[in-house]
Amino acid sequence: MSDESHHERELGGQLLASVSRSFYLTLKALPKELREPISLAYLLARTADTIADTASVDAAIRLDCLERYRALVRGTGDVQSLANMLIRQFCPQQSDDAERRLMEKFADGIAWMRTMQPAPLAAIQSVLEHIIDGQMLDIRRFPSDGQLRRLASAKELDEYTWLVAGCVGEFWTQLCASELPASLDPAVSTAQMQEWGARMGKGLQLINILRDIGEDTRDGRCYLPCQPEDIQTEWSLWLQTCTEHLECGLRYVQHVAHGKLRYATALPLLLGIQTVAKMRTSTWDKIQQGVKISRLDVASILAQAAIACRSAGAMEKLYRKLAEA
């Protein structure tokens, strides 16, 4: 058995399923040419996310670990030294067993990355650098000192959503173009697909920000660039921006030519627009508590998407239906 298949078997199965939650549905649906590099990139990004989010570890230590992680992504630094630090300082702080195991398997994830071919490796390195930059920016902007802080401008929020999610849409498109070139509609340029993909990613990240507005502000973070008294109005404006981004996501999905890839790409978009529809019709009190779609909704979307993905028109019809739910 090759090193590559060993790493995929060890990390790409139960561990990936346990940390990716609903996104695992997308990963499972990917064609085999894309499943391994995207699964690996997801695991590595989640590792960085867990480092950044372990608030019980001092911010200076988290920033140092992310700096060292970024160096390893670039191909320099001592893997074992950082792996040991994560096991020693981060593993005991994880209440979620899957997150703890992710920390324990850090060195294996880096080893898996080093088995990648040049094109997917370059794509993975690029997207991880952007994501880590966004996480470090987040830690610096929102120190855990009990004070409520906010982003200063719409530009800052747009930059943040691109760094942690919009760049993923570009990465996804880059991988499709290099590993499965016939998967994208030749009538649309790769640059246009990357732009639509980036906006879809930013829209999905805005969903996270908007549905977590209550929890985040209670923790001292406000990603919306406004004063506390204006937050409800600003929230509604960014919900509209989110919807506009997702419209680009619809165009993206409609121009994916490969059936399995179209289905995999459509799932987060469809789950996202249904979440937007629920947020739009929820009271502000409910929004403060957090809005999520049910498992029954998820199952229904999976079933409907399997049929709707057969044509661009059917996909748009399902999208519009969920947007009005």
Rank of each mutant, 00 (worst) to 15 (best):
L267R: 03
V188K: 07
H245P: 01
D219A: 15
M193Q: 11
N208W: 00
Q254L: 05
E229T: 02
L224N: 06
V188G: 03
R221M: 01
A198V: 02
R262N: 04
L261C: 10
A191M: 12
E195K: 07
Q192G: 07
R199I: 07
D212S: 09
I231V: 13
E247C: 05
E244V: 10
E247I: 07
G203R: 09
R221L: 02
Q254R: 11
D230S: 12
L237N: 11
L269M: 01
D216P: 02
Q227K: 14
W235Q: 11
H255T: 03
D212E: 09
T190H: 09
R251S: 14
I209Q: 13
R221G: 00
S189M: 06
S189D: 10
V253N: 00
H255M: 05
D230L: 13
W238D: 04
E244Y: 08
L261G: 07
R199E: 15
L269K: 00
P225I: 11
V256C: 07
D212Y: 05
Q194A: 13
C242T: 03
I231M: 15
L204W: 05
L250V: 09
E195C: 11
S236R: 14
W238Q: 03
L267W: 01
D230Y: 12
A266T: 00
Q232R: 15
T265W: 01
G197W: 01
C248L: 06
Y223F: 15
C226H: 01
P186I: 05
G201V: 10
K260L: 09
P186W: 07
I231H: 10
T190S: 09
Q240V: 13
Q192T: 14
L237F: 10
T233V: 13
T233G: 10
P268M: 06
L267D: 00
K260E: 14
C248F: 13
C242V: 01
T217A: 04
L269C: 01
P225M: 14
M200L: 15
G201C: 10
M193E: 04
E234V: 14
C242S: 10
L206W: 02
T241E: 14
P268S: 05
L250H: 01
T233Q: 15
T190Q: 14
R251L: 11
A264T: 00
R221I: 05
T241V: 09
I207E: 12
K202H: 04
L269D: 03
Y263D: 06
E247A: 14
G203Y: 06
W235F: 13
I213L: 03
R199M: 13
R262W: 03
I213Y: 01
C222I: 07
T190D: 12
H245F: 10
R251N: 10
V253W: 00
C248A: 13
A198Q: 15
H255R: 11
A187C: 09
H255C: 06
L267G: 00
E247K: 13
C248Y: 11
G214T: 09
L267C: 04
D219Y: 09
K260F: 01
G197F: 01
Y223G: 12
T243E: 15
Y252G: 00
C242A: 07
E234T: 15
V256Q: 05
E244K: 11
R262K: 13
Y263H: 13
L210A: 12
T233K: 08
K202P: 00
D212G: 11
L250S: 05
L184N: 07
